[in-house]
């Protein structure tokens, strides 16, 4: 999955219109970024990349682009 599609998946996860996220957003500024969204992100990582992303690594992310980088490194 390329970066554009990853961002679309995250738009969907956070119930945002497609194309909303660009990567530069601070996660703390996103209202929908909560523990349920973290689990949803982990589910995407597992379904699309076959990996189990550590919640600690997700917690270390500060921007949407950090999440994308985490998946691209998987």
């Amino acid at each position: 999955m390329d970066q554009a599609n990853l961002l679309k998946s995250l738009d969907d996860l956070l119930e945002l219109d497609p194309g909303t996220l660009t990567g530069s957003e601070e996660l703390s500024a996103l209202e929908a970024w909560n523990s349920l969204a973290v689990i949803g992100f982990m589910a995407i990582a597992n379904e699309e990349f076959g990996v189990v992303v550590s919640p600690k690594k997700i917690a270390a992310c500060t921007k949407v682009s950090d999440l994308v980088a985490l998946l691209q490194a998987a």
């Binding site: 349920l36 689990i39 189990v52």
Partner: peptide
């Protein structure tokens, strides 16, 4: 810790 429990389950 929901995310950790989810990670355990998937693993």
């Amino acid at each position: 810790d929901g995310p950790e429990i989810f990670a355990f389950t998937m693993s």
